[in-house]
Simulated assay, not measured.
Amino acid sequence: MPPIVTPDICDAYPDVEVLEPIFANFGAIEAFCGQARTVKCFEDNSLVKQAVAEPGDGAVLVVDAGGSTRCAMLGDILAEQAATNGWAGVVMYGCVRDVDALAQTALGIQALGAHPRRSEKRGEGTRDIPVVIAGVTIAPGQWLYADNNGILVAQERLSLA
């Protein structure tokens, strides 16, 4: 696959949706893409933990954590598990922690920021539903493209040739 360059994708596909520019890269893989799988949860990462334990098959886990900046929803252990299980990346509409370890993890990770506090574990949340983050509705099965320039969503896989 050719490199992911979101400005070039926007030029070639003007109808792609672009998330608001509020995310920063935290993973060792700075450009990534894959079909979206979604989790909606708030200050409880139980379903994030459940998802990354499953085969990722090159998908991107999109987590609507409500934009909370009061705790981290992904850290080094879950990120390493996601990488090991074949996830291409995680887009976290919330915070992450263990950022030095995340920078060494072979996974694309974009999030709002870093926070040292871990989340609760109450088993709450929903998976595989459309989520609205950064002004864009992302449904399971859509294609997500991310790099240091931003995050894009398309209805199907795009030709990047």
Results as ranks from 00 to 15, higher is better:
V90W: 00
P3E: 10
F42M: 02
G150M: 11
F32L: 14
C95S: 12
N45Q: 09
L144F: 05
D11N: 12
E156R: 08
V131A: 02
G66Q: 01
R127C: 09
W143H: 09
P130Q: 02
L107M: 12
R37I: 14
I109V: 06
F42A: 02
V62G: 04
S68L: 00
Y145K: 05
A65F: 13
E43H: 00
A101G: 03
N25A: 13
R127F: 09
Q110D: 11
G66A: 00
M73Q: 08
F26R: 14
E20Q: 11
Q81K: 05
I133H: 01
W143F: 15
T38N: 00
I4D: 07
A111I: 06
A65W: 04
M92E: 09
N149F: 15
R118K: 08
N85K: 06
L47C: 02
T105K: 12
D8E: 11
A24E: 10
I129G: 04
V48M: 07
S159I: 15
H115M: 05
C41H: 09
Q81L: 08
A139F: 09
C10P: 06
A82L: 09
I77F: 15
D100E: 05
L144Q: 05
F42C: 01
C95Y: 04
N149Y: 14
E156N: 12
L47T: 02
V63G: 01
C71E: 11
E80I: 09
G141V: 13
R157D: 09
W87R: 12
P14M: 01
C71F: 15
T38C: 01
A154W: 01
R37Q: 06
E43P: 08
I77G: 08
V90T: 01
D8S: 12
Y145H: 07
V48T: 02
V52H: 04
Y13R: 06
V136Y: 03
V62S: 03
G125F: 15
D76Y: 07
D15G: 04
Q35C: 08
A65N: 03
M73W: 05
L152N: 01
C71I: 14
R157A: 13
G89P: 03
A24D: 12
E17S: 10
G67K: 00
A36C: 01
R97N: 11
R37G: 07
D57E: 07
G34K: 00
A146H: 04
S119Q: 05
A134N: 03
R37K: 08
N148C: 14
V91H: 00
L74P: 01
H115R: 05
E120F: 13
C10I: 14
V132K: 10
A12T: 11
G150Q: 04
V63F: 00
S119Y: 05
L78D: 06
K121L: 14
N149A: 11
A12V: 13
